[in-house]
Structure formats: structure tokens, C-alpha cells
Design a binder for these strands. Structure first.
Length: 342
DNA sequence: TCAATCTTAGAGGTTACATCA
DNA sequence: CGTGATGTAACCTCTAAGATT
């Protein structure tokens, strides 16, 4: 069961790209509206209509998701030779158009670098695997050469593997071997943590604003642009989505807390009022026969209220009082005109 | 047509490492 | 300089969805 939150106050949404569905299945959603705080509104969907995270991500990048749905391409076999040919048919209009602030102007070419990089990746489909090591910034005397020998993924003829991730892992290990210049990782068991540069982070951030998920093309293009491995880009996006969700959850939580406090306060007030009304009812039974026109002041807040504008009216109704029976005759009430309700 | 199986992507959680106060 | 807190890259496991057999 998923708990979906639809906050009435959208103005302080931190992540505009995380648009949540505005509608929740009416069958099983409850809407709580605080009468004391009109702009405070929570909607809680308790079914799968809004299926949580996936909806979050999909709504954040509809084009990508839609594209996925539209394409319905055959599931790529692990390193199937057709993989990149298939994905190369991606609509160019869907490619990222981003700026590369830290790169020289002549290499930006009007913010279309990533698109073009994707095109490059497309053109170099056959080199995709090799692109990973080739983007390594290892010095010439590094182990890149042996890495290339290791890097026989292409040459093992797209042999079917049980899992693409096996291949990715192998790529990563190989690339890691290639980029490890300090030779402190002979056995490959310790993970090497590489801090991304500010520029790299900034660019990934920009990309994330465009699309919170990446298709393989975009991933490869990004990796090429940033001299990172595709796996690194993928991990970064995964972590970034997780951070976004965490932040949004915190915001939602805070909001719900306020919502809860407000409702609790109102509940307390209404209960008090019910108690007073009950007392009133038992202590002064004869006031029930008074004409309605004389009963315009609420005993609890001492404000004149119309039957529709004050919550007490509904409470009075619920406990069996007519809406015109707020007052005992002991309470002096001036006849109309009634005071203006604020 | 339907069920079993395979493959993939993403979420959620965790670990390990880097940085900073 | 040692230490705890924090941020985050990298990893692992599980699941849903689509494709294939």
C-alpha cells in the first residue's frame, strides 16, 4: 500500500520536476481540508493509483517514459549486436540540449553538445565499449594497453551472458584497473571512491534537471562528455534520484506535521464546543422553543454566526440541535442586525 | 493464448570513503 | 593530529515490466 501525498500548497515545492499527480483515484482517496486554514490541504491516496516512486520518476520525465512506451523495442540482449543500432533510432528531438559551462566556447556549439555527443556515440556505436577505456585520462604509461587487451567484450562476440550487469561489472573492473594509477588495488576488492569535480557535478545536475532518468544513449553521451564511465553516470543519477526523493519526503513530512497539528487543534476546539452545547442542551431544555431569529450568537466564541458560516452549526446539527439553538435565553442577544462575522 | 523464463531498469537500503569542523 | 558528523560514490538486493520461448 502506498501513501501518496498531494499537497495543496505547491508554491514551496522544491523540485518542480517532481510533479506529482494532481488527481488521485476517487474511490479510495480521502481529502482532508482544514477549515481554519483554507490553503492547507492534504489529499491521501491509499491505493496503487499513484504508485509511488515510479510515478514520481515517470512524471518527472514524461518524454523519456513515453518514448520508452512508444518504442516498445525488443528487449536488448546483453550486449546484443543490435543494441545500439536499435537505440540509435531515438528521436533526435528527444536528445538533451545542454550547455557545458566549463568548456571553451568553440566546443560548445550552441549548447547542443550532448545531443551531438549522442550523435557521436551513435556514429561510434561499434566503439562504444572501447569508448569507456578511451575516455580514461590515464597517462600513456598506464595500464591502458593491457586494459584494452582485457577489454575483449566486443571480441567475445556479444556472447550471451546471464546478465548485462555482469558485463558492466567487468567493464567497470577493467576500466577501474585502467584508471588506477596508484596500484593500490591489485585484487580489486577495495572500492575506489572518486570524487567528482565541481564541473562534472554541475553538468550532471543540469542534465538531471532536464531528465531525471537517462536512456542508454544519453548515459553514454554524458559519460563521454564528462570522461566518466557510463556506470558512474548511472550511479550518480540513481543516487541523485534518491536524494531528491528523500528531500521531497522531508518536505512532505513537515507539511503533514503542520497539517496534523492544525487538525488536532481544530478537533480539540470542536470537542470543546460539543461539550458546551451538550451542557447547554441539558441545562436549558426550554430554549428549544425560541424562535430562530433570536439565536444568532455562538456561545463558544461569542460571535454572531450564520448557519452556514460557522462550524458549530454542523456540530449542533450532529448532536441533535437545530442550527438555531445555540443560545440559552439567559444569554442576552441583541436582535438583528447581527454583528458582522469576520 | 498462456505460463515460464529471461533481461533490464530503477528503487531502497547499505557500505565505504572523502571532507570538514 | 585524532575523531565524529556529514555527504556521496559505489554496491547489493529486490521488484516490476516487457520480451521471448
Amino acid at each position: 500500500m502506498e501513501l501518496a501525498l498531494c499537497l495543496g500548497d505547491n508554491t514551496n515545492k522544491q523540485f518542480s520536476f517532481l510533479e506529482k499527480p494532481s488527481k488521485i483515484n476517487n474511490n479510495s482517496s480521502a481529502s482532508l481540508t482544514s477549515t481554519s486554514d483554507k490553503d492547507l490541504e492534504c489529499c491521501m491516496g491509499l491505493d496503487g493509483a499513484f504508485s509511488g516512486h515510479r510515478s514520481l520518476s515517470s512524471s518527472s520525465s514524461p518524454s523519456v517514459e513515453d518514448e520508452k512506451k512508444k518504442k516498445k523495442k525488443p528487449a536488448p540482449r546483453a550486449m546484443d549486436s543490435d543494441e545500439f543500432r536499435v537505440s540509435s533510432s531515438v528521436d533526435p528531438s528527444l536528445q538533451l540540449q545542454l550547455h557545458f559551462p566549463w568548456l571553451p566556447e568553440n566546443s560548445r556549439q550552441g549548447g547542443r553538445m550532448l545531443s551531438e555527443a549522442a550523435t557521436v556515440a551513435e556514429d561510434e556505436d561499434e566503439e562504444e565499449d572501447e569508448a569507456v577505456p578511451s575516455m580514461s585520462v590515464s597517462p600513456p604509461n598506464s595500464v591502458t594497453s593491457s586494459f584494452r587487451l582485457d577489454f575483449g567484450i566486443k571480441s567475445y562476440g556479444y556472447e550471451r551472458r546471464s546478465n548485462k550487469r555482469d558485463i558492466d561489472d567487468e567493464v567497470e573492473r577493467s576500466a577501474s584497473r585502467a584508471s588506477n594509477e596508484d596500484n593500490d588495488d591489485e585484487n580489486g576488492s577495495t572500492r575506489k571512491k572518486l570524487r567528482l569535480s565541481k564541473d562534472q557535478s554541475a553538468f550532471l545536475e543540469d542534465s538531471f534537471k532536464e531528465h531525471s532518468t537517462l536512456n542508454p544513449k544519453q548515459k553514454i553521451a554524458l559519460a563521454k562528455q564528462l570522461n566518466l564511465r557510463p556506470r558512474q553516470v548511472e550511479v550518480w543519477f540513481q543516487n541523485r534520484r534518491a536524494r531528491t526523493k528523500l528531500k521531497q519526503t522531508e518536505v512532505d513530512c513537515e507539511y503533514l506535521k503542520r497539517c496534523c497539528e492544525s487538525l488536532t487543534e481544530e478537533n480539540r476546539r470542536l470537542q470543546k464546543e460539543v461539550k458546551e452545547l451538550r451542557t447547554l442542551k441539558t441545562s436549558s431544555p426550554f430554549y428549544m422553543q425560541l424562535p430562530a431569529t433570536t439565536l444568532t450568537m455562538c456561545p463558544s466564541c461569542e460571535r454572531v454566526a450564520t448557519s452556514a458560516s460557522h462550524p458549530s452549526t454542523s456540530v449542533a446539527h450532529n448532536i441533535g440541535l437545530s442550527t438555531s439553538s445555540f443560545h440559552s435565553p439567559l444569554i442576552p442577544v441583541k436582535p438583528q442586525p447581527a454583528k458582522q462575522v469576520s
